[in-house]
Design a protein around this nucleic acid. Structure first.
Lengths: 140, 140
DNA sequence: CGTAAAACCTGTAGTAACTACAGGTGCAAG
DNA sequence: CTTGCACCTGTAGTTACTACAGGTTTTACG
């Protein structure tokens, strides 16, 4: 078994296992600046502390809720500063909720259209297909 | 006013206007192979015919319904061949419908979570925020 | 202690589906 | 004849990762 805490800190593999974030993704987050550059071991391996673990977990959860990395960055900047208020976070969350609801509405529209098209279809062996006819012409 | 049909065919700008597909996107579709290379005028301007207009309209409509370019490519290959049957098109449409429904389900789950989080929030001027607390820790 | 395997490192390129230039030509109207 | 718009090519940027290749460090085992 490999050492979980080499001298002081988690290796990237262990961080990955604990957060469920891919190793390559963690390094990408570092490159993109959303995760800080961690300390290194003698040999150059990344060593993470629990604050960084929490930060990565925050990013993961936020991404799962559909926030863009830029939005997550915005949250983190706010959190890191003294400027953060619960009200501000609430506004951003509600804005995002609106976007999510819009996406749901768009997809539902797609779903209805696809359902109608599929229902018109005879599913036969012929090369005539009302789905294709529907799609092939202009004007909605 | 510029000529709509220069000698025989639409210029890319007119094709763009009629289909609602961005000029740059049309050229990208040509590069990626999903649109054929059109004839050219003496001076090298692209000239499209009505078959190409219909093809582009098909791509547009399919993309709006959430099919990937690869899937659209699959449809077009099928349509171009003699192998196309209505049944085959139906299968692909239903597969796509399943994916769309899955996306809707995922987004609805997001929506519920965001709603619950936002509801817990006092929206106050304090730096304590239950949304942030929710997101900052591991374990669902 | 020696070595082999696992885990780590850097750097680059690929993915999807565009979009956005820069820098240059064609073409029609005044 | 020149102004200006529409067109051309080619390249680079976007989002959020993922996937190598080719090399080093660490750890485990005999």
């Amino acid at each position: 078994m490999s050492q979980i805490t080499p001298s002081r800190g988690l290796l990237i593999g262990e961080l990955s296992r604990r957060t469920g974030v891919n190793i390559e993704t963690i390094r990408y987050y570092e490159r993109s600046g959303i995760m800080p550059k961690p300390k290194r071991s003698e040999g150059g391996h990344r060593l993470y502390n629990s604050e960084q673990l929490n930060r990565l977990a925050f990013i993961k959860r936020s991404r799962e809720l559909g926030f863009s990395l830029k939005e997550v960055c915005g949250f983190l900047t706010l959190i890191d500063s003294d400027e953060m208020t619960c009200g501000e976070i609430h506004v951003r969350t509600m804005d995002h909720l609106t976007e999510v609801r819009q996406k749901i509405a768009d997809l539902k529209k797609m779903e209805r259209t696809l359902k109608v098209m599929a229902a018109q279809c005879s599913r036969g062996d012929t090369p005539d297909c009302p789905i294709v006819d529907d799609l092939y012409h202009l004007g909605s």
